[in-house]
Amino acid sequence: MRRLRRPQYPVPTLANNGIAGQRRINDCHEYERTATAPTSFPPYWTRPDVKGLLHAMQGRVCAYCGVAPRGLEVDHFRPKGAVGNGEAHGGYWWLAYAFSNYFLGCSICNGTRKGNTFPLVAGATRCTYQTRGTLALEKRVLLDPAEDPVEEWLTIDWDSVTAKLVPSPALGEAERSRVQDAIDLLHLNVGPEVRTQRSKAYEEAARAAVDRRWDDLRRGAMRHRPHSLAARTVLQRIAPERLPSAEDEAGDLADLIWGELRMLVSGIVDLRARGKPPRPFDERQLKALCWALFVLQSEAVSTNEHLAALLEREPAEIRTEMVALFRALR
């Protein structure tokens, strides 16, 4: 798990006049009028602008376990329809269309591990629509990578060749046990695939540190790379001044997204040359990637310049296509 920062960028779908925003407002009105919570939630969160923003926040890496699977799903941090364990709480339905409640997660963390559960610390009261203003004070077990300082709370046990994740020793007794519960709930230590990958990433980082391959280490520590916590742990210990800055990370992520985008665009240019229309799925993907770039570009002047330079280097055909695409979406 690594620290994430939610980009401050408008999401049209979720804005009050957007399709999901309207739905959210209607759901709330309906609840205030009839005291019935909505039972169905059209998946507006799969729209390209929402996915693009999430992509800019965390790359292609699951917010919880740190793997980079082929398909990532939009995860509702607080479940929208039910809270599990037979509890008579209709779920956090008013957060179904709130960006602050979204992460990208692998299907294992999102579906198998989390599912419809959201445990609280023993004895804590669950937030309801009426008390929604106190959401931040709710005593949840799961860690929110965008709210909690997860990199200070969670660390890889230095001597563990299997890269065991432990609550930071600096924490108090109660916090440690809560963090441990969060680790256990998501199977962050017992999932053999996750653990194997993390152990290998940790080994790779350690070897890079011995060989003084700082660039490799720094790249590995970037938060949109899988299992970045491994390289981060090593750098933190031996050369914290070499940890990547937010700007470095944004630039690297922009490079990765650019690579994906240009693959798609050249595919579409290819199809068009053969007289075929683009495939619908590609188009949605394309839009999501563009949104992610807009977000990154808006965040740092350096990224903006970097992207402009990348565009200059493309062949004329792809450059025109990309410019047209950006214009259409703006």
Binding site: P69, I108, G111, T112, N189, G191, E193
Partner: peptide
């Protein structure tokens, strides 16, 4: 998709065995 990806994406399980999971748990 590879079989691993289908297991993970469609069937909600990862393909490594549960025995190594047990080993990890005990070792931890």
């Amino acid at each position: 998709f590879t079989s691993d990806e289908i297991y993970e994406w469609l069937m909600g399980t990862r393909p490594m065995g549960a025995a190594i999971e047990e080993e990890l748990r005990k070792s931890d």
